[in-house]
Computed example of a mutant assay.
Amino acid sequence: MALYNLEISDGRFSIQPNLSYYTKIKIFLAGIFLCFAVVPFVPIAHDIKFFLYLIGAGLCCYVVYEFLFLANVKIIFDQGTRKVYKKIPGIYTKTLMDFEEIRLVNDTSYGLLVYTIGAKSTRFVKNYPISEPFSDTKKGHREQLEFETTILEPLMEFIK
C-alpha cells in the first residue's frame, strides 16, 4: 500500500504511518513561496511585508519540524530481535517494545478511528499510531478495509 510505504524484507516489516503529512507540507511550501517570492513585488506597506515574512518564517520552521519528526517516522518490526523500533532517519532509532508486549489498540479519542500499538502494561499511557485516522464515511471505511487487509493482517501474522 503506497500510502504507508510498506516494506517487508530480511525479517523486517516497516511502515511509515504519517505519509499523508506530505500533502500538508506541499501546501505549506506553496505558502512559503508566496511569502518570499511574491510578496517582495507586491506594492504594500513595509509593516505588512514584515508580518508576511514572519508568517513565512514560521511556516518554514513548521515544515522542517513536520518533515523531520512526523512524516519520515518509520515503525520497524524486527523478527531477528523480536522488537519494535521507531526510527527517524538520520537522527535516532528508539526501541519501543518487544513483540510479546504488543497490544493493538483502536483509538477513537478524537472521533476518528486510528490503529495504535502499545505495550500491554502501558497501553493507555503511551500508544504509537500505525495508521492514518479513518473517518466514518464510505471512503473512510474503504481505506480502513484496505489497511486491515494490506497491512494489519500481515503485521499480526508477522509478529506471531
Results as ranks from 00 to 15, higher is better:
V73C: 00
I102M: 09
G58E: 01
L6I: 13
D78K: 13
E66F: 08
D78V: 10
E7M: 13
F28R: 03
G90D: 13
A2Q: 10
L68C: 11
G140V: 00
S131D: 01
I55E: 07
G56K: 06
V114T: 14
N18H: 15
N106F: 03
K139L: 08
G58Y: 01
E7L: 15
Y85D: 12
F33I: 13
S14E: 14
D107M: 01
L29A: 06
I76G: 10
F28A: 11
K86Y: 10
T108K: 09
F50G: 10
M156W: 00
I130Y: 00
K26N: 11
I130K: 00
F134G: 01
L145Q: 15
H46K: 13
P43W: 06
A30P: 04
F67Y: 15
H46C: 01
G11Q: 06
E143A: 10
R12T: 14
S9Y: 08
C60S: 06
K24N: 07
K94D: 14
T108H: 08
L59I: 03
K120F: 05
F41T: 11
L3M: 14
L29G: 06
G118K: 06
G11W: 14
H46Y: 11
D47S: 10
D98E: 14
L70P: 01
A71R: 01
F36H: 11
L34Y: 12
P133R: 01
P129W: 00
F69K: 03
F158C: 07
